[in-house]
């Protein structure tokens, strides 16, 4: 029994030590005045690109001498609202929402505003109460990708759509696809499937395997349009494992795994590389302006994107 008590006590000690560590490190960084505290918050840290952005945000914030705290709620937006209230209680100077639809935490954003806490978005979107959001122009990227894909398949064929409409960026891309497809009656959408998050690669792979089984004839599937790179990777893996050829897969985001596959000549033929580091840098830049009492450059700021295609 004593041992158990000991374990419990050890826990508390670890907890309190790590807590002390955190607090003292923030205190020591301030030069003269207290260091600015920034909370970087997202439900999607397990996504490669979100993680990349969070890392860049954290590094850039620390370069400025600010303390950065990362909060991930593993896909749970309700929990994100609670954690936002917590960091508001702990009086941070700014909150960055990464890859999150701010509409879902409207009242927390208002509460932050009432407490003079700045709220930025990184690959989110802008709503009232926030200072600014940096993102890619999702509609523009989707247009770039979709037009490329349509050209590749000669404006006709059977298309599979992998998407995840609850994500605001992916939604915009999918809506742009819908819009463009209206002008191409010879392109037949076999099915649109929602890819589960977390675990999009595996989920897309499984769905693609089933779809390949259901459409075994040559030419029955011409292309796969994926709302972002991870489902494209899963689809390409399934296509390659099944030994099928002449199916064009495209993604959007330009994550490193997808780019590598494109370069090696996989079924993924192209992606649009989002400039995630650029978004993170814009956020930090604008945040510094806001901290210094200057006006920000705008509420929706775009980091430019580029098309990456294989041989």
């Amino acid at each position: 029994m004593k041992k158990l008590l000991f374990i419990l006590a050890a826990f508390m000690l670890v907890l309190s030590l790590s807590a002390c560590g955190e607090e003292s490190s923030t205190a020591s960084e301030g030069s003269g005045e207290t260091a600015k505290k920034v909370a970087i918050m997202t439900p999607y840290l397990s996504s490669v690109t979100t993680k990349q952005m969070v890392d860049t945000l954290e590094a850039s914030a620390k370069e400025k001498g600010w303390s950065a705290n990362i909060v991930d709620t593993n896909g749970d937006v309700g929990a994100l609202a609670s954690r936002m209230e917590d960091v508001i209680s702990s009086k941070v100077d700014a909150i960055i929402l990464v890859s999150t639809d701010p509409n879902q935490v409207q009242s927390q954003i208002q509460k932050a505003k009432e407490n003079n806490i700045l709220v930025f978005g990184s690959d989110s979107s802008y709503i009232d109460g926030m200072t600014a959001n940096a993102t890619s122009d999702n509609a523009e990227m989707s247009k770039l990708m979709t037009e490329y894909l349509i050209e590749q398949i000669g404006e006709k064929g059977n298309l599979i759509v992998f998407t995840h409409r609850p994500h605001p960026g992916v939604l915009k891309r999918t809506e742009m696809l819908d819009e463009i497809l209206k002008d191409y009656p010879d392109i037949n959408v076999i099915t649109e499937q929602e890819i589960k998050v977390p675990g999009p690669i595996e989920n897309a792979r499984q769905q693609m395997e089933s779809l390949l089984l259901a459409n075994q004839e040559e030419g029955s599937i011409t292309a796969v349009w994926a709302g972002w790179d991870e489902p494209a990777i899963g689809a390409a893996q399934a296509i390659e494992a099944a030994g099928r050829e002449n199916i064009v897969v495209t993604g959007i985001d330009g994550n490193s795994q997808a780019v590598e596959m494109i370069e090696k000549g996989s079924s993924i033929k192209a992606t649009v590389k989002q400039n995630f580091d650029g978004m993170a840098e814009i956020v930090i830049e604008q945040m510094e302006k806001a901290f210094n009492g200057e006006e920000v450059d705008g509420t929706e700021l775009y980091a430019p994107a580029e098309l990456i295609e294989g041989k």
Binding site: E22, N69, V71, D72, S82, R83, D86, S90
Partner: peptide, 13 residues
Amino acid sequence: ANGLTILQIPTFL
């Protein structure tokens, strides 16, 4: 959840 976030303990911990 509340206290650990206030103390800025990383999520994984």
